[in-house]
Design a protein around this nucleic acid. Structure first.
Lengths: 191, 191
DNA sequence: ATGAGTCGCAACAGAAGTGTTGCAGTTATA
DNA sequence: TATAACTGCAACACTTCTGTTGCGACTCAT
């Protein structure tokens, strides 16, 4: 049977759903084609339990994407993108996002249908990201002729790249500092 | 049966292999889990023909990765990384790489075993990439304190990002110019 | 404590993919 | 042209995954 978004579940059922989503992230990150059986085993749950909550493999993956997108949105909000000084907001947001993305890398890189909840959230996040960049631009931190959408894409790419070679688990604040420094100044000689 | 690297094939067989590899790139780029049947159909070939040349799905994918890596290596070489002035080499290499990567995106983002031919080629490419950056650094184009491995990773990320939003098919030279400009100067205000 | 919700287990049917083989017909190449 | 290579097609056995059902046991909520 399975439900994508039903009414409130019992406490133990809710625990199972969380365990399944976390296991799915862990397993699928290493092997995108992994079977429901593998995910169930990693979650410490029977395969049938997954099918009770999620009708399809598809439904599970969509729920995973939505869950991760919500956490990402919260990570951005926690950085006070509208009120904090641009540089402070960028640093805090970047550090927060790095942590969320390192835990939900697979789910957040999932291609989402344009009308899914995850896609809407990602679109909203991009909007707020550009708003922060705009404020930075007004403060002369970013060149006035810069294409903010390109800057945002570069920013995303720097975050993604920082996570690849991070098996050692460097400090998020250190990584964030390097990301923002590179974003604003590049690799050229300093004045 | 299938061979990963046999002796010289007949002309028509060689054509088939090329068609299969190109179809595999096309099909797998859209659906990484696509079946051999789908690949065969896209190549205009019977499924059994694929199995004659490639023992496994695995073998096919490795051959795909190797083929793409060789083309990428050639794209770098064509930019004269050791002899041309650093800025010229960077621009030419970037434009060449953009074209190859747009045609073989799936194959080039494939995770490769450390001892595979593709992995060796990618490692060699990274080595040459850093060599060019080093020459740029000697020419004061890159800050002397910069971590060249980080610069290389940023460079890769910028190339990857440029290809995502490129459904319109912008001019490789234009894209390359923006990539190098961003790499060296970032988004901050110009002096 | 009682009832509804939840779970694990076992079993099932069905779908889809993989890899192999044999053979007849076609094509390159010497 | 003669030979060997190549191809498509059909059929096969085999494995794996999916999604479902039924049932007894357990657990949360009231």
């Amino acid at each position: 049977m399975g439900e994508t978004a039903g009414r409130s579940l019992r406490a133990d059922a809710e625990r199972s759903v969380r365990a399944i989503l976390e296991a799915a992230e862990r397993v699928l990150a290493e092997e995108p084609g992994a079977s429901m059986e593998q995910i169930a085993a990693a979650a410490g749950v029977a395969r049938t339990t997954i099918h009770r909550r999620f009708a399809n493999r598809q439904a599970l993956i969509e729920a995973l994407a939505s869950s991760a997108a919500r956490q990402l949105a919260r990570a951005v909000d926690d950085g006070r993108p509208d009120t904090a000084p641009p540089l402070v907001a960028m640093h805090r947001i970047t550090a927060n996002v790095l942590q969320v993305k390192s835990a939900w890398a697979f789910a957040l890189e999932l291609p989402a249908d344009p009308d899914s909840e995850a896609a809407v959230l990602h679109q909203d996040i991009a909007r707020r990201c550009i708003a922060v960049l705009k404020r930075a631009q007004d403060d002369k931190l970013i060149d006035e002729a810069a294409d903010l959408d390109w800057v945002r894409r570069v920013y995303y790419a720097l975050i993604g790249e920082s996570l690849h070679g991070n098996a050692e688990g460097a400090d998020p604040d250190t990584l964030a500092a390097r990301i923002i420094d590179t974003l604003l100044h590049g690799a050229g000689p300093r004045a």
